[in-house]
Design a binder for these strands. Structure first.
Length: 387
DNA sequence: TCTGGGGTCCTAGGACCC
DNA sequence: TCTGGGGTCCTAGGACCC
């Protein structure tokens, strides 16, 4: 059966929320990501007014300040953005039982077979846009196509407040009409590789066999390129539940060299990761550490043990242990990260009784602290090392 | 201009087992 | 003395996305 997908993307989402909440920001350049003077910050979102000055996402904030000094700069109110995101997703649910949210500001809707309810796809999209606008005050750009991949690219075709409909059967032609840079999933490196291999357009890719593309770009990227220029029929999203991870990292305003400062940072990261593990009711036996040095070289080290991380102290000890194995003390550290991988649901029992050692005492104390903090948010019980 | 933070997936090599 | 083939798991690094 012919499928129909919508991809819906919120326009300049974080900046739009700020303009919605603050009338005085409307019509003005708004830049989310940091305040002027914040070292090492990057632009998270720029309003369309700011984009006119050349400001865009991922740009160093210092450059954005130079390009648009009079902009309104905001570090970001992420709780608020998630709140608005939920409102928008709730509207999407009115149009399809199958909504695949792929980030805070975008989702796919499988609208196959909804004609009797909402009319043709384009009508549905218009209704959806209006409802989002009236219920949340935000605008979205929509792409409609027979594959998720083309719908995604189509939603970016006209922005903001756009609607792009790629007729059934026209997915491949649509792709062929686009420049190379529009290939979603091919970033800087792959584009470079493509160009150096003599590819200048999507048509060039289309002309080659899958085997040849794989021989140049590797198995996965080769297949991806082959599929994507044909409309990405076999590229799908939100299939099965994958192995998850929880991590936290921090870039420091000034490079760290002092061991005490490093340990404090590791403690803070451990605390953040373990708190989220607790909230999401998961556990993990694999701890990973990331170090980015002043020269931006990045190293990682991870270790899987037979026992899950049992407490923040346990996490901290494991992180320190990994850190000691990797640390090059001759270089300053600009970033430290810590994370847990291969997450397991907490309600799956652990094999054997091995967990019942002295660690479980600390774990129980920690559970109690979390409960106490939930009950009395004014209490913030923090590790002594952090003082 | 000087590079965030939170993720997922892929690759290649090594260890280990049968 | 020289050395198979397949499978699985783990690790480090890299690419990419929003």
């Amino acid at each position: 059966m012919e499928k129909t997908y919508l991809h819906v993307d919120l326009d300049a989402f974080f900046a739009s929320v700020e303009q919605l909440d603050h009338i005085e920001y409307r019509g003005k350049p708004v830049i989310i990501g940091g305040l002027p003077g914040d070292r090492r910050a990057v632009v998270s979102t720029a309003s369309y007014e700011a984009r006119k000055y050349g400001v865009h996402s991922a740009m160093p904030l210092s450059l954005a300040v130079q390009l648009c000094p009079d902009a309104i700069f905001i570090r970001g109110n992420y709780k608020r953005y998630h709140e608005k995101s939920e409102q928008v997703m709730a509207v999407f649910a009115n149009y399809s039982p199958c909504v695949i949210q792929i980030s805070v500001d975008e989702a796919f809707l499988d609208i196959t077979g909804t004609e009797r309810l909402f009319g043709p796809a384009e009508e549905l999209a218009k209704k959806l846009k209006e409802e989002v606008k009236s219920k949340t005050g935000l605008t979205v750009s929509v792409g409609i196509a027979g594959t998720m991949y083309v719908a995604k690219i189509a939603s970016g075709f006209k922005k903001p407040d756009g609607l792009t409909y790629v007729q059934a059967g026209q997915e491949e032609n649509f792709m062929l009409s686009l420049p190379l840079e529009k290939l979603w999933g091919a970033g800087t490196k792959t584009l470079q590789h493509l160009r150096s291999a003599g590819f200048t357009s999507i048509k060039d890719i289309h002309a080659k066999s899958e085997k040849l593309l794989q021989s140049i770009f590797g198995k996965a990227t080769g297949s991806f390129l082959y599929d994507s220029v044909r409309g990405g029929q076999s590229i799908s999203f939100g299939e099965e539940a994958k192995s998850r991870s929880i991590s936290s990292e921090r870039t420091f305003e000034f490079d760290l060299t002092d061991r005490l400062a490093i340990d404090m940072a590791l403690m803070e990261l451990s605390t953040l990761v373990m708190y989220r593990m607790h909230k999401e009711e998961v556990r993990s036996c694999t701890v990973a550490l990331k170090i980015r040095y002043e020269d931006f070289t990045t190293v990682t080290i991870q270790e899987t043990s037979d026992f899950p991380v049992s407490s923040t102290d346990d996490m901290f000890e494991r992180c320190k242990n990994l850190f000691n194995k990797k640390w090059d003390s001759s270089r300053g550290i600009r970033l430290l990260g810590a994370g847990c991988y291969n997450l397991q649901n907490k309600n799956i029992p652990i094999q054997g009784n091995l967990f019942e050692n002295n660690n479980s005492k600390k774990a129980k104390v920690e559970e109690a602290i979390y409960k106490l903090e939930e009950k009395h948010p004014e209490l913030k019980i923090r590790k002594a090392l952090l003082f």
